[in-house]
Simulated assay, not measured.
Amino acid sequence: MSKTVDFYYDYISLASYFGFMRLTELCRKTGATINYKPMLLGGVFKANGNTSPLTVPAKWEWMKKDFARHAEYYGIPYQLNPHFVFSTVSVMRGAFWALSEGRIEDYNRAMFTAAWADGKDLSSADVISEVLSDAGFDATVVMEAMTHPENKQALIQATEAAVERGVFGAPTLFVDDEIYFGQDRLGWVERALL
C-alpha cells in the first residue's frame, strides 16, 4: 500500500520551493502521494515565537549560498527573488481554491516557479494574474476566489492546524506521524516511504 506525505508549505519559503521540486520526483519514484497543506508561514512563526532567517544576517548569508549549491546540485532553476520579502497571503488563499478544483499541483508549480525561478513579485495583483494566465488558469476566476471568505478562513484554520500539529517552519513534512523539517531532510522522508 502506498504511503502519503503531508507537505506543509508557503510560497514565500525558498526551502519549500526546493522541497516541492524534489518531493514530486521522490513520490513518483516511491509511488507515494502528496497531501498538500498550504499555510501562512508568518502565522506559524508568530504562533511559535520563531523568526525569519533574515533576522540573523550571518545565517541569511550562509543560506543564500547553500540554496545556490542545492540548486546547482539538483538542477533546479533558481534565482534569489529581488522582491523578497513579498506577501503571499493572496496566493496562499488561492491554493485552497486550487485544492478544491483538483489543480493544486499545477498551481503550486506556477507559484513556486514564478517566485523562485522567475523572480516575480507575488504580492502584486497584476503579476499574480499574469502568472495564472501563463499557467493556463482563468485568472479572473482565481483572483476572485482569493477574496472569498471561505478561502480566507481556510488559510487561517490551516495555519492554526499546522501549529497544533507541531509545525514551526517550512517546509515541514509528515510520513504517518513522523515529522521532518526542511528540504534537506528528504533523504529521511524517502527512507520512511520505502
Rank of each mutant, 00 (worst) to 15 (best):
M92L: 13
T55G: 06
L132G: 01
Y8Q: 02
R93W: 12
R191Q: 12
F96L: 08
F181M: 03
V91W: 01
W116D: 01
D66N: 14
Y36H: 15
D118I: 00
L80I: 11
F84V: 09
E144K: 15
M111E: 06
E105H: 03
E61A: 15
G166T: 02
A47Q: 10
R165W: 01
P171V: 02
R22P: 01
E101Q: 15
T51F: 12
E144S: 12
Q183K: 09
T147V: 04
S129T: 07
T147D: 08
R191E: 15
L54T: 05
Q79T: 13
F7N: 04
A114L: 09
H148K: 15
N151V: 09
Q157R: 11
K64C: 02
A47H: 10
S124I: 06
E150V: 13
Q153N: 15
L193V: 10
S16I: 13
S123V: 05
K65I: 14
K37P: 03
Y17V: 00
Y78Q: 04
F174N: 10
N81P: 00
P57H: 12
G187K: 08
P77A: 10
M21K: 15
K3M: 14
G187Q: 12
H83C: 02
L54F: 07
F112E: 02
G187L: 14
F168S: 07
P171F: 03
Y8M: 02
F96T: 05
S90N: 13
A192V: 02
L173C: 08
A68S: 10
E25G: 08
G119K: 01
T51C: 13
V167K: 03
K152P: 00
F45T: 04
T140D: 13
L186G: 00
Q79H: 08
E130S: 07
V175Y: 01
M63C: 08
W62E: 03
K152M: 14
F67N: 05
C27D: 03
I128W: 05
